[in-house]
């Protein structure tokens, strides 16, 4: 019962926030200079039309306005949009009036999610052992080296890391493709680039968490009983730090999701991020609003899931 109240409260908060996000985006986009029909390609195309063609173009613009309800006041447009969005219908985009946006979202969000999830798994699979090693070898060259690297991994932005990876693995060694999407070799570099920061974060978190736990009385008891250090760390210290790790992964997920906007740009991956950027550049409002909505919704839902998972895994935590 408790959990249900918590759930419905959080969900309604998410819905209100999403509506706010959509409204803000709508107002901002409508104050932007230039609109889709003003953009270069259409104008260039019209440059040489004869008078009949120009009339047809005018008619086309009027129909265009009608089709996307652009002739209505903006709050009506937002209302229409929200009503349709509730049933996961976003209508067509400006650039491709023949493709419903929800079809695009389904494909592209899958793509982006794949990179992010692979990065996430990478973060755990690589980050946890690295953190443990650093903690085991505290204040040795190993520790400094690993922590130094993870510092760099955390600080250097993902797109610079991506560039570095391309230079090394594609340009110099020629092992992996520079860009593209669809085969397994295309996944490796983007996942590495996007996962670098989370790997580092996880490693640092695990290290400090283990070191913190080592100060606890029950660990000292374990030591005093003569249990080997490595075993103590793995059995007690590491286990205790794994549950809170979930709460570290939540924000990491949002960072990676937004980071995908840049990484997709570098590797030319047809995901949500590239869709968002091209929508902004082409003033494709329906597409822009929708991709913003999807990103925001994904982040909020993941935060909710993390909270619920955390409460489920740690009996001391109550949902409220």
């Amino acid at each position: 019962m408790h959990a249900l109240v918590f759930f419905s409260k959080r969900l309604s908060a998410i819905v209100v926030s999403l509506a706010a996000v959509v409204t803000i985006t709508f107002y901002l986009m409508h104050s932007a200079p230039g609109n889709f029909l003003e953009m270069q390609q259409v104008r260039e195309a019209m440059a040489s039309l004869d008078s009949k063609g120009r009339e047809a173009q005018k008619q086309y613009e009027i129909e265009f306005q009608k089709r996307y309800a652009l002739d209505k006041p903006i709050y009506v447009q937002i209302g229409i949009y929200l009503k349709n969005a509730a049933t996961f219908k976003f209508g067509p985009s400006f650039t491709n009036p023949n493709v419903p946006i929800e079809a695009l979202v389904r494909e592209k969000f899958g793509t982006t999610l794949q990179i992010v999830l692979i990065g996430l798994i990478l973060a755990i699979v690589a980050g946890v052992p690295l953190g443990v090693i650093a903690a085991l070898r505290k204040n040795t060259v190993w520790d400094y080296g690993l922590m130094g690297f993870s510092m760099i991994g955390q600080v250097i932005p993902s797109f610079v890391i991506a560039v570095g990876l391309i230079v090394i693995f594609s340009v110099m060694l020629g092992w992996l493709p520079t860009s593209g999407w669809g085969q397994c070799r295309h996944y490796i570099l983007p996942a590495l680039a996007i996962g670098a920061a989370p790997i580092a974060t996880v490693a640092r978190y695990i290290r400090s968490s283990i070191l913190e736990t080592m100060e606890q009385d029950y660990i000292r008891t374990a030591f005093s009983k003569g249990i080997p250090e490595a075993r103590v760390i793995l059995a007690h210290a590491l286990r205790n730090s794994l549950i809170p790790l979930i709460t570290v992964m939540g924000p990491q997920f949002s960072f990676m999701l937004l980071g995908s906007v840049l990484v997709e740009q570098v590797f030319r991956i047809p995901g949500m991020g590239s869709m968002f950027v091209s929508a902004a550049q082409q003033r494709d409002y329906p597409m822009l609003v929708t991709s913003t909505l999807i990103f925001a919704a994904a982040i909020m839902l993941v935060n909710l899931v993390v909270d619920v998972l955390y409460a489920f895994l740690d009996p001391r935590i109550k949902l409220e």
Partner: peptide, 12 residues
Amino acid sequence: GADLASGFPAAG
């Protein structure tokens, strides 16, 4: 860097 590394001001 948790927020730095991904290239934008921290969200959330």
